[in-house]
Write a protein that binds this DNA or RNA. Structure first.
Lengths: 323, 323
DNA sequence: TCGAATCGTGGTAGCGTTAACGCAACAAGA
DNA sequence: TCTTGTTGCGTTAACGCTACCACGATTCGA
């Protein structure tokens, strides 16, 4: 019909006809069917966004960033929460292909996501990895400087005189955990502090409770740490809880630094010394990369964007007391 | 094709044929096209979720609750963030109709959302309102006991001896703000404290900065409040910041209570006396209502679910000092 | 005045899937 | 043996839209 032309406002329609069609559309409350449109044009105007945990403020902000840019560009966002489950991630990726989304933004579960991502490459769905790279896997990528950030945090602790510095981390199949461990080790090495594996508490699925248990175990060591580096905003919650349980004063008896700031926490209680990552920007930039690729404005080469983190010294590291 | 039968595993297929089809599917990496399927069956297996701000932990948890239940039921979630903008909400609702989603879960911008929601009723898209009702509008509804919760919070302050109690709220076109104001006024009235409009700080779009400014103005009154009731987790951030700016000790010089707990904040710093709402449950129950309706397991009558809030007394109200 | 370009509109086909039906082959009951 | 039913699979049409082509009407340059 000519209706289609009016809807998609193509130029080849007389003013009069357009007016009449628009009147009818308004009167009948007609709404075009995007499924049908998608079927013919093979365009859905939708992106998939896949994260391991929407409730984690870091990922929430990423989602918001994506949503904003996508919306401005006329795209919708299908949200998927994998809960860190690789099977669920696979299911979602299949669904994204099935839905014919035009692109996917994903913070993968970990290195084991690689076969899942093959689904996208096989079906020519462009995608951008956010926050987490995958060992030896080429793709557009937006992430933070985990190595450098971790190194700086740990150096900060070392400068404050700490030598027994523990790290609480999630499983090393997650690139950020790997990189932050590397930064931690680099800082120790540079200061001539020998690595002590007793002080590195790994646990695959990081949750506050898990981090709490790890912290308690660390505190029970014959030579317990005087400072802790928590791998992210989730882990740090457990550390704080463990310290409270043991009546340990932070930073007096235990210094604490971590990755990721949480806006609400820091505004209500500016306490944690953190490496704050611009999470929302991760989302906006990643979406921009995706849009560029869709527009073909970009070479076949994969691009990596590394965003600097913001080192914010607050109370938990004990810097102010040391002054 | 017979392929369709295999995919939807209908019974009328021989074992041998099924095996062969499945083999081909695996080999070719065939993924069915949901658009086409949706077109014929007029089923998309998708819900729309519309909230005013994903980054607000309260709504984030709702989204997560929705996502979880939806996923279990085989549905996907299209996420929309209106940013409190009524026009944007309208656009999203049109899109939801256009996408043929099977239902919508929405925390509306406010009472002005009513014409927007007509889009759904006109197109027979079932929906559930979450957290916010709309004046004189019938629909399935999941919300908290704002009146009772607010009343309890304010009564708590009164019991602690406060008589100059201010309220910081968002615009009254949002039902929760209206209800909480009512609870506040009820509590005052019950205690025989006269209403003082000077102490009620309304601002349409609530943001920490706005709440901060309101608080500062309240503190500058000739007879400033000794206690503040913040309408939600966003407003309370601004109050805390204002108090810090003025070097006012909470609760010593200014008592503080609010609606909504923020998990991360309360775990790291269990300070705020709050009326904690089970946000995630809002999402799960709302989705359940929607699923019931889709399954036709439910009368035409609209249902309202009111979830009780959890009154958590911590430091900010000064109860412990008063003991 | 005539051919050619342009404009506005309508017709047809096809996107990938499934609902509905059709039909052969075979089994079972009379 | 004939009817009836069941099983397994193919065919057709339709979902609502747009790409593409066709065609009459108008405009324009020569």
């Amino acid at each position: 019909m000519t209706v289609s032309r009016v809807i998609n406002d193509s130029p080849r329609v007389s003013v009069e006809t357009r007016r009449r069609v628009q009147a009818s559309v308004a009167k009948l409350g007609y709404v075009p069917n995007r499924l049908a449109r998608g079927l013919t044009q093979r365009k859905t105007s939708a992106f998939g966004v896949i994260v391991p945990d929407v409730a984690n403020p870091f990922f929430t902000l990423i989602v918001r960033g994506v949503e904003q840019v996508a919306w401005r560009a006329g795209y919708h966002v299908i949200l998927c929460d994998t809960e860190g489950d690789i099977e669920r991630e696979r299911g979602y990726l299949e669904d994204m292909v099935s839905f014919q989304v035009e692109g996917v933004l994903i913070a993968p579960v970990g290195d084991t996501s690689r076969p899942n991502l093959r689904l996208l490459t096989r079906n020519n769905v462009p995608f951008v990895l956010i926050d987490r790279s995958i060992e030896g896997f080429e793709s557009d990528l937006v992430l933070g400087d985990s190595v450098g950030g971790a190194r700086k945090l740990v150096e900060h602790l070392i400068e404050l005189g700490h030598r027994r510095i523990a790290m609480i981390t999630e499983g090393l199949e997650v690139s950020t955990a790997r990189d932050r461990l590397r930064g931690y080790l680099d800082a120790l090495a540079a200061a001539g502090i020998p690595r002590d594996d007793e002080l590195i508490a790994k646990s695959s699925a990081i949750e506050p409770e898990v981090a709490r248990d790890s912290t308690l175990r660390l505190l029970d060591l014959s030579e317990p740490p005087t400072a802790i580096f928590a791998v992210n905003n989730i882990a740090v919650v457990g550390v704080v809880e463990a310290a409270r349980e043991r009546n340990l004063e932070i930073p007096g008896e235990l210094a604490l630094v971590c990755f990721d700031d949480i806006e609400h926490v820091s505004r209500i209680y500016p306490f944690l010394t953190v490496m704050a990552q611009p999470a929302e920007t991760y989302g906006t930039i990643a979406t921009q990369l995706l849009l560029d690729r869709l527009a073909g404005r970009v070479s076949r080469r994969r691009r990596t964007v590394v965003l600097p983190a913001d080192f914010i010294i607050r109370l938990s590291s004990g810097a102010h007391e040391a002054e």
